[in-house]
Design a protein around this nucleic acid. Structure first.
Lengths: 219, 219, 219, 219
DNA sequence: CCATAAACGAGACGGTACGTCGGGTCTTTTG
DNA sequence: CAAAAGACCCGACGTACCGTCTCGTTTATGG
């Protein structure tokens, strides 16, 4: 869970409504779907959530922060399946990610908040914490599983291993995002297959030894 | 040059000021640097350019279109050098691209207009024409040169070759953008080297035969 | 006329709409009638006038100034009739004034802006210029006419005459306002007669010699 | 004291704090001094009084009622002195009243609540009970004393006597208020003398016989 | 060389959303 | 059970930009 810091002390006075929080995030996603990022307004979200504007501003500093939180949870849907081979797993995740970016609430919101974050360090940190870094788990999980299968060697130098994981993450996420949102071409099974092939071959070489390829689909 | 179609000699009446065009684009870039995408206003651009708002709207439909045009020209600075090996060439372009994305007028503008374009097909087309596709030349040029050097085979099937070029483009552009703007980690020489290694190894395997690697720096 | 200073130079750019001015003042009066001072909002006035809120604020600093201007013109309706005797004239004006203060747009507005003006010197000046001093004419006119009839002596000392005129004005206006708005009792013909009797008798004595009373109604 | 109906000992539970009542009224007056009527807020009063907003609303229906109660007590300070002549007594009361209207907590509050009361009969009644009618005692007391001194005849018709008292009250209160708050000229000893002269001369004539004038200052 | 016609600067216009503030109500914990 | 605390809904505030619309003025060309 995200757990923005509702600190705890829960002192005195009426406590903040927990239902309101969820209603607002849900309303935000709905508004993103209907209007898109640039036409989404705080007032509209408040109305949809059945909440006063002040209640929004009591909890979030502005549109950016609100949308990040509203969208972040969607990225938790991503799951690394266990399909028996690294290639199959990567392909599956790539397709999941592309499907996620095809949803109207994510496609516009993600790029927009990233754009805003280039001028707002706090926002960048929030995005990194809530969305980006949270998904690196997928890379790490995939690697561990591949190592258990013997598809990937256990790298002795942990620092290098981390660097590689970061690189892999940027390549996967970047390529899928670019294909989907910039080139505006579909990420279909074929593209996923070709991309995965490129990645895993490169990964093997970069790691000094080729991945012992089990083609996707085999067990 | 971009040459949006100032269609023709325009029979009578006062002709549009050519200076104004350039002053506006320059003012737009300056405003982007100072204020960033979201705080840039048409009024501010007009003031900086010493021009009335009307003049802006006579030429551009809105903020999005204006910014695309203002920024597009910057991407033409990218050049595929000839450093003697594909690896060196790719590394160099990656570093150039990263440097470009480090400039304040591009970092915020690019993502923002991409975000807007997800709801505006005309804008998406403008971006693709003015920015994205225009840079695919780099991939094609790099490949041709590598083929001339014998580093890459000449692919018989042109359709497949195009698909691969697109893939390479998405991977390079996507990874650099993601690293720079999302992960917000520097694209330094080391990262460029590791990324290039991954890419070229993957490329060789994906094309069915490994790239005959001439390491960067060698001649 | 009021002639707030639309300075004149009428330089460049689109000129301010003269119709809008009148529509706004009219809408303000209508809103005063319907809602009263405290519930009148700038937004409501704008809507009624078919005008944007910004247009209001471009012309008036706020609710106070707007209402003063909207109401001021109503006070110009007051007219000193010539009924043949000072007493009759005063009675008539008193009844006119009371009738004016019975109109919903004046009864609440006048006291409210006076209340505001106790903390705002500029507003006080505006009220004085637009409403109060403008009506002193009635006192002066009444005196001149009474002097022409021989009901009042021509006072030799002009300074004293002015002081007396001010005093008379405060007494008349104050008594009618207090009766109407504070005591909330009607100013009917009887009250007007008794008040006028008091005033004119006092005036004669204060001026050192009694007014040569022609009773109201006689010619 | 005003004694709004704190109905009774309140059988069970925590009793209402009596200190709170006075603290709130005092805080209200302080806030009036600092901020004036229009900027006074319930929240500010509560803070100053060290009390929760709820406590205010438990005791008063709103800002208007609170301010009336807070200010009403100040008007009880007015006292008809016994200076030996009606003229002297009236002059003294006029100056007292003017001094009261010079205090910032009264000058803005009085007009403001009167303005509000034009649309709120209950408020008007509260003002009349708490402030206005309560001060008619001064007129009655002055008249009685003047009658005892033989300055004024004892009027046989009680109804007419009451009408005259009301008229006198409106004239005195109205003139002083108008002079002070609308004309914004000082009520100094000279003005008080001239006003009193006018009033008493008028009063004598209106009552059918002149006041047997003992000039102020004589015994 | 003068008329036409478009572009220009200035700035007012009708709108929409902003983020804040105050009013009054409600729901907690504390005394 | 009242009181303090503070969250809540509501509605108005005054401001900022949007994109459009007059204006009066300038600057090319074409009759």
């Amino acid at each position: 869970m995200l757990s923005r810091p509702h600190p705890k002390p829960a002192r005195s006075g009426r406590p903040r409504s927990a239902e309101a929080d969820e209603a607002i995030l849900e309303a935000t996603r709905a508004s993103l779907v209907d209007l898109g990022w640039s036409k989404l307004t705080m007032g509209d979200v408040a109305t949809r959530a059945g909440v006063a504007k002040t209640t929004l501003y009591r909890r979030w500093a502005g549109k950016n922060e609100l949308v990040v939180d509203a969208v972040a949870v969607l990225f938790d849907e991503l799951e690394m399946p266990d399909l028996g081979s690294l290639a199959a797993d990567v392909e599956a995740v790539v397709l999941q990610f592309a499907a996620l970016l095809d949803r109207p609430e994510t496609r516009t919101a993600l790029m927009a908040v990233v754009a805003e974050s280039t001028r707002d360090e706090a926002l960048r940190a929030r995005i990194r914490d809530s969305i980006v870094n949270r998904q690196k788990r997928l890379v790490l999980q995939g690697r561990r599983r591949a190592q258990e299968r013997g598809e990937l060697p256990v790298e002795p130098d942990e620092a290098t291993a981390d660097l590689t994981a970061d690189l892999i993450f940027d390549v996967i996420a970047g390529a899928v995002v670019h294909r989907t949102l910039v080139s505006a071409e579909p990420v279909d099974a074929d593209w996923a297959r070709r991309f995965t092939l490129l990645l895993l071959a490169g990964l093997g070489a970069a790691a000094g030894q080729p991945v012992r390829q089990k083609p996707a689909g085999s067990v």
